[in-house]
Write a protein that binds this DNA or RNA. Structure first.
Lengths: 177, 177
DNA sequence: CTTGAAATTTGACAAATGTCAAATAATTTA
DNA sequence: TAAATTATTTGACATTTGTCAAATTTCAAG
């Protein structure tokens, strides 16, 4: 239908393209996160840093996924997290106002976003479960089973932060079995 | 408006009331979760049990909150979790089919649910953060700061499971400071 | 109000994981 | 390609947290 094509066109118009190098910071903690990203290639990392400089990875966003500093973007309040491109990355992005507007203007978009939210929420519930029920070894094996690619692809340090363990412990787990 | 009143009325019609005693099981692991609950009074607990019988609490749902075994209810697949009433509880419930139908029939409901999902997702992100960045002491203090009521109200064992630590460790944390 | 069951506390010890430091390996960039 | 940086591995040891058992306290049902 013409109407839907026009809507889709308007949808796409709102997005801009960003290309980054390795290890660029896209969002500083303390700033309000203006954008949600759709990663075409590369990998974004949403992470926090404590007072001692110790980092923890909240999310890893690879090709074909939406991602942002979700609480900050959604509530438009200062972010506890940083966003960084671990690899050279190409991503589409849209600002908060335009993103909210899509909910009212693009037919069916509200449902698409809702279902995507359900999926992300379920993924985060699964992650909570792995954190409260599994020890370091089990969490590592679980990640091996469900997402072996990011283990191959990303540095130890990032994977360890993501699993909530130290790099040394991860290194020892890897050499065990 | 009359139309909205009729819609609201239809909305309410879909819910049924359930009253439970203490420690009743509302959902068995392995079953598909048919209902989402709105707790009027009391407290529901969504928890898992490992092969050794060790329990872990995924969620605690108190007055005025919606809750269910979310992945099972949403995807209509067998649940890894149990639902239990920790206290005598009064809750409204609605089945999956009717709940999905509300999205299409009640004007504005899709948006309400979407925003509720965003909130729940943000809460789960915060919980992940507390699990990967804090040790047992910090997590306990954090819960004291953000939700002291459930510590007062619920047994140690449940709180410990929720924090992902053993009851003995929690008991020692409480006596320390 | 009493009694039996459940929850909590405590001690002793074991296991898991973290920390620090140093050596080695891998990777990036000039 | 070489130098410099960054990542990984390893050892020694400290710390945190878990486990098991027993004593004590609290609480709910009769």
């Amino acid at each position: 239908m013409v109407a839907d094509e026009a809507a889709l066109d308007e949808f796409c118009q709102k997005f801009r393209l960003k290309k980054t190098g390795r290890n660029e910071i896209l969002l500083q903690a303390g700033d309000v996160c203006p954008y949600i990203y759709f990663v075409n290639s590369g990998c974004l990392r949403v992470y926090m840093m404590d007072v001692n400089g110790k980092e923890s990875t909240r999310f890893l966003i690879t090709e074909g996924r939406f991602g942002t500093a979700f609480p900050s973007f959604t509530l438009q309040e200062p972010s506890l997290a940083y966003i960084q491109s671990i690899e050279p990355t190409e991503a589409l992005y849209i600002n908060h106002h335009d993103f909210r507007e899509l909910l009212d203007t693009i037919p069916g978009w509200e449902r698409v976003y809702l279902i995507s939210l359900e999926r992300d929420y379920i993924a985060s519930i699964k992650r909570i479960e792995s954190l409260i029920t599994m020890d370091a070894t089990q969490r590592y094996r679980h990640l091996m089973d469900t997402n072996p690619e990011i283990i191959r692809r990303l540095p130890n340090k990032i994977i360890a932060d993501y699993l909530g363990i130290s790099q040394e412990t991860l290194s020892r787990l890897k050499s065990k079995k």
